[in-house]
Design a protein around this nucleic acid. Structure first.
Lengths: 178, 178
DNA sequence: GAGGACATGTAACGAGTTACATGATTCA
DNA sequence: TGAATCATGTAACTCGTTACATGTCCTC
């Protein structure tokens, strides 16, 4: 689906398909390198893509466009979740509060970096313009919302973790929290 | 890591481990059924878990607890993203605005259902109480933030899509739906 | 003429899922 | 006694990744 979709935008060599998937779809999709050429060969065998000769870029055939629409219309199948960060935090008692704080700080920095990336990407896409722009902006917006949520969550969780400040010594003043 | 972590909470049979992972870690982790028994056998072979006899539940050994802490301390490796919903929306021009709206409505309903599930889960976990509760609440909070972000995003995107209102026709009579 | 990019492929390996096969226990 | 649930395991198969192997084209 990703390969056909990429070729629906413009004819491309396999190499360019890989770069397009990495750079344009990168924030929500990925294809391993060794996957793309076999896929293109299979698609060519089924008449969904074609190329003039071995040096020319692949282009979508009519049948390929039909097939792409079929694939896009198929129900979204969700992948089984596997979030290593959550797994570590869930067993945070085994890991220790300090390491958990470290993980949350990483997550926060990560979210901030992502937000910056999305802002830049949004500017680029909006400047280019084109028929696919509104749909592209929707996916970027999803990334932004998710990253902002991660940022807020990390900050809240850091505040909620026990011993949020370094305790210098056992100098508890009277009237402190129980 | 997930299996050792589950056994760090309480001794369990393989069957119970599977249910614990599905019911407790389900919103951020999953293990396939056919994965758990081989894993338990391997862990037993390495002396990280033990059981009295073939009928008894597995329990963590001292070495197993050490190994779990090692694993938890390893850096989080992120999985390559693969979000079928975003892929479909990105190529939304091929798919058509109506189908895109449908996808967004599904995503919205999904997020709402998740939010309800998290609220219930939070209440359960908070009521039980225990040493792992604060960490558990952190992961639930992550789910809530993400789901809320998805909900907001879906609503915004629905509003942003072209033709957001149904074109009024003469079939706009009371009870005219269906 | 050397290094980097563009470009195309293959093969081995590994992780994980589904489906199958089997048996014990509980309870209506 | 039959069905549902609890319980343990195996085997085939699919998917995807990493690493390898090869070659061209351009430019400094």
């Amino acid at each position: 689906m990703a390969v056909l979709g990429a070729l629906s935008v413009a004819p491309m060599t396999g190499y360019a398909v890989r770069e397009a998937i990495r750079d344009v779809l990168g924030h929500f999709w990925s294809e391993s390198f060794g996957q793309i050429y076999p896929t293109l060969a299979a698609l060519e065998g089924r008449g969904l893509v074609r190329r003039e000769d071995r040096a020319a870029p692949y282009e979508l055939t009519g049948a390929g466009r039909v097939r792409l629409r079929e694939l896009l219309a198929e129900p979204v199948q969700r992948v089984p979740p596997r979030n290593g960060l959550m797994l570590r935090l869930f067993f945070g008692r085994q890991l220790g509060p300090d390491a958990c704080r470290e993980l949350l700080l990483e997550a926060k920095a990560d979210a901030e970096q992502q937000l910056a990336g999305f802002a830049a990407l949004k500017a680029t896409v909006a400047a280019e313009g084109g028929p696919d722009t509104p749909y592209s902006l929707i996916t970027i917006s999803a990334g932004e919302h998710t990253a902002r949520a991660a940022l807020t969550w990390a900050e809240e969780s850091l505040a909620a973790l026990p011993e949020p400040v370094t305790t210098p010594t056992e100098t508890d003043l009277p009237g402190g929290e129980q």
